[in-house]
């Protein structure tokens, strides 16, 4: 009974949020002005930056699940961690792909190993590694501990990615939003970008929660079907 109710709420909220996301994309295409330097292609930013933020936020959720699992040794936190790792991988890959496609006409190259791109690539590898690690270790305290430690390491990469353009010389542009001296974007562009980040953040949390719930239900299903097997 309660499963039905929570599925109703989370699925509905996800639908609403995805509709809002489409609305923000329409603003990005039809309402904000073109960029003086890059023309229309810069509009990728309204997807690329929110996706990057989503990958960071997923790492934050992964960190929470990992720390709670390490402290309580309760393996049920792995459901939250695994959901966060999957969603995090999705958004990291999307960030890398959109960034690369944007880079070709603007930088002239699909890729370069500067600090921003390298640390982001590492994030994707580690998210994938988390999922593989989870599958490799049999259920038990060892899996809980190993996956949680990796989860903390993944979260540690995020501030490095964020500050990479400040700490090192990179091809990637420096920070546009959070910087001393105020943002370097026109205000209507900044508005749509910030709203995109906010909506994508909600989409991320929503998807993680739906996935976590499904994982929990799958466990319940497995326990029941094993218990009932004759």
């Amino acid at each position: 009974m309660t499963e039905r109710k929570s599925k109703f709420t989370l699925a509905n909220s996800l639908t609403v949020l995805l509709a809002m996301l489409l609305g923000q994309w329409m603003l990005a295409w039809l309402w904000v002005p073109v960029d003086e330097a890059q023309g229309d292609v810069y509009r990728v930013i309204y997807l690329h930056v929110p996706a990057a933020f989503a990958s960071f936020l997923s790492a934050g959720v992964l960190l929470i699940g990992s720390l709670l699992a390490l402290r309580s040794k309760d393996e049920h936190w792995l459901n939250l961690s695994r959901a966060a790792a999957e969603v995090g991988l999705l958004f990291t890959l999307l960030t890398l792909a959109t960034g690369s496609i944007w880079g070709k006409p603007t930088w002239g190259v699909w890729w370069t190993w500067d600090a921003r791109l390298t640390t982001s690539f590492l994030l994707a590898l580690m998210y994938g590694g988390w999922i593989l690690l989870f599958g490799a270790i049999p259920q038990g305290p060892s899996r809980t501990r190993s996956c949680s430690i990796l989860g903390v390491m993944i979260a540690a990469d995020v501030p490095i990615i964020y500050k990479s353009v400040t700490w090192w010389r990179t091809l990637h542009q420096p920070q546009t939003i959070l910087r001393t001296g105020g943002s370097t974007m026109d205000s209507d562009m900044l508005c749509v970008l910030l709203s995109g980040i906010a909506i994508m953040a909600l989409v991320t949390v929503n998807m993680i929660l739906v996935r976590r719930e499904t994982l929990r239900l799958e466990q319940e299903l497995e326990e029941k079907s094993l218990g009932g097997a004759s």
Binding site: W29, D40, V41, V44, L47, A51, L94, I101, W102
Partner: peptide, 10 residues
């Protein structure tokens, strides 16, 4: 095409 490809991926 680059712009469209990005949003299609999205």
């Amino acid at each position: 095409p680059y712009l469209i490809a990005c949003y299609a991926l999205g």
